[in-house]
Design a binder for these strands. Structure first.
Lengths: 221, 221, 221, 221
DNA sequence: CATGAATGAGAGTTCATTCAT
DNA sequence: TATGAATGAACTCTCATTCAT
């Protein structure tokens, strides 16, 4: 009643051993999905293309993910964890040492982390997807808020408060709006995907300029 | 079950001003389209729903717009002009007067303009659509870059250069990155659509904090 | 982005006027659906084939029915009402007259009704579908039980009770099991769809034999 | 999420009697198949579920059965043989004895056999599957007609003819329609799967009522 | 100008079947 | 023998677009 047939397993000439097969096929699909979702957005991306790009059959995707939305959300969650970890490491790094790292220094480290680990990698697409598709996926937005945004903002905020108490910062702007540290980063991500070809943007310099503007006046006093 | 509905055109018996009615049907459709595209995004929005919301037949949309994409792009172009005009008025306002308005003051005016005319209105949805869908519509991105971004940025940049020359600004940060003025605005738009329910954001205060951080130190010296 | 195009409206040479269009397209689809569902069963029937048989596009079906299941259930409900009505007319027919029609006579009328209006028409397929797919559609089974089975059985049962009271019937078999009147009918329906080609079955004679066996002995006394 | 499960074969450490295990794996699969096919019907049943229920791998099914249809048909053929054997034993039972068992008595025995061995067991599902899926499997219908129906009917018919000749039966109804003996049984099977929860049915009493109605009048004379 | 029934390509999802292990 | 990951044809359902009225 229903024909079928794998038969023509595509298999590159090299093909090391065959061990890794099942294990990283999931990763393969996630990578392909990132490409497609980035290029087309969630709604317009076709699972057929994801499959093609991952060099698996369409049905294989459903072996690893319940449906399109699950693939999408797992993609966004999976790829964001390393960044959170790194961010926490950086912020914690300033506290472990005997002599405390100045917030200004910390801000630069965060900026560098962002430039190197996000803007400079495929992760920038993850972040952009979260920004662009978030409103349509309340669950995702909530997860992202709880796990990333509020956590990062609060960590930075309490550090900023300390900096104000200790005199490093004169203004409480960063206490009230720790968002300001990442604002240029968001701009950068959107810029790169739309206007980079018209006018390149030096993200590192942009973020440094912002940090300097936020701190310079304090140090001078 | 879904039998064809009879023609229950909404329209009072009197039918006042049947003349301009035909004319602004286009505006009706555009308004409905903004609602739908904002809520669902371009790909997921259904013209059926746009028609329903505009209280016209599906086919009517095609009398005014070539296709879904044309509707979308015309929507984003149409609604952005007033903002550009206002922005130019504000920026020009600082130049016409005999005594020049300080850039700092100008920045505050831009911020207020943005808060009142964009964040506080449906236009914030237009901007968000441009940010989220832009990458998929190169034509739109290019238009927006040419007509809005580069124009606004350059206007502000030359004004900033003058401020540097005249000593109002000590740092050239705003010359190199006039983007910094609008960075908090972009954050605000994305925030409002995703995280506002978890944690409200005072956009005006945010923008003021940014401007003060960009200017304060200069003025103190 | 997405092509489309009706264009090739199939239109038979005759094609009276074009008035009936929308109205009976639903009936057209129902007729085609009956064919397909009868032949293949619910799960194996393809809406594509239903559309082809009804000479409409696949999407047209969804203009009239929410989904495959709705089409199926509405089909079974729509076609069964006339039979119920006729059955009630027959049963009522025995009561209106001044002199009461004997139950035996009524039973023959029911049998004839069944043979002429069900077995002899496409409605036998409806009944078979209810019998074969009912267990998979609890809603349908319940509807059918409430609207047809229990109603018909009870009507016949009270009539049988009267026949016992009045001496027409000696045994209370038909009071306890009015099912016995329709048992041969059910057999007939299944037989016709499976074994008719091996050995034809004279349904009318079968039902008459059953009725005679149920009544004969009474009349003799 | 749906990672491949490791090999958690259910099997005590001892693994007793590994010999016959392989042999009756087929039976295991058949039992599981009956469950699934009964619940969902042929088309909607999933081999995946059959495998899960039988606690074997999906591929294992194909070691014992050519394909889904073969599994289905072999299931229905395998489980029907014992019933045929029993039926023949009962019918023969009336002939072997010196003094012949009256047909009436034989009929009661058939009814009891049916109630105890079919209605009261999983075999009723087999019969229901034959009734509901038969039309879609001509081969099956033919097999069933040849091996069961015509054989049983003819056996009963010739016995009925004798009863008529010998005066036990006055009417030739059962000669012309031996079907009448099993009609209530068929009703019962469909009833149980659809309406039992609304209104239970005493199958034994139903069949006895039918037999009595078929014989009573004769015996009285 | 306006309508909305009809179209049909296309997308997501399922599942019988295969085969390397 | 037994496994279960992988396959891809097939199916349901959606929706941009058209056009007869």
């Amino acid at each position: 009643m229903q024909k079928a047939g794998p038969r023509n397993r595509k298999r590159g000439a090299g093909d090391p051993a065959g061990k890794e097969k099942a294990a990283d096929k999931r990763a393969l699909i996630l990578a392909a999905a990132l490409d497609e979702f980035s290029q087309k957005g969630f709604a317009a991306a076709r699972l057929d293309d994801v499959a093609k790009r991952a060099d698996v059959a369409k049905g294989t995707i459903y072996l690893y993910f319940k449906d399109k939305e699950a693939l999408f959300q797992e993609l966004l969650r999976a790829e964001i964890s390393p960044v959170i970890a790194m961010l926490e490491a950086v912020l914690a790094g300033g506290n472990t040492a005997a002599r405390q790292v100045p917030l200004r220094e910390l801000a630069f480290r965060v900026a560098d982390l962002f430039v190197d680990q996000v803007i400079g990698t495929r992760r920038k697409d993850i972040v952009r997807l979260i920004l662009t598709e978030g409103p349509r996926f309340p669950k995702l937005a909530e997860f992202y808020y709880r796990e990333v945004i509020s956590r990062g903002l609060n960590a930075f905020r309490s550090r900023a408060r300390r900096a104000v108490d200790e005199g490093e910062l004169k203004s409480d702007a960063l206490v009230r709006f720790p968002h300001l540290i990442v604002a240029p980063a968001m701009i950068a991500i959107m810029w790169k995907s739309m206007f980079e070809k018209f006018e390149p943007l030096d993200v590192r310099a942009l973020m440094r300029a912002q940090i300097e503007s936020l701190f310079d006046k304090e140090e001078r006093s």
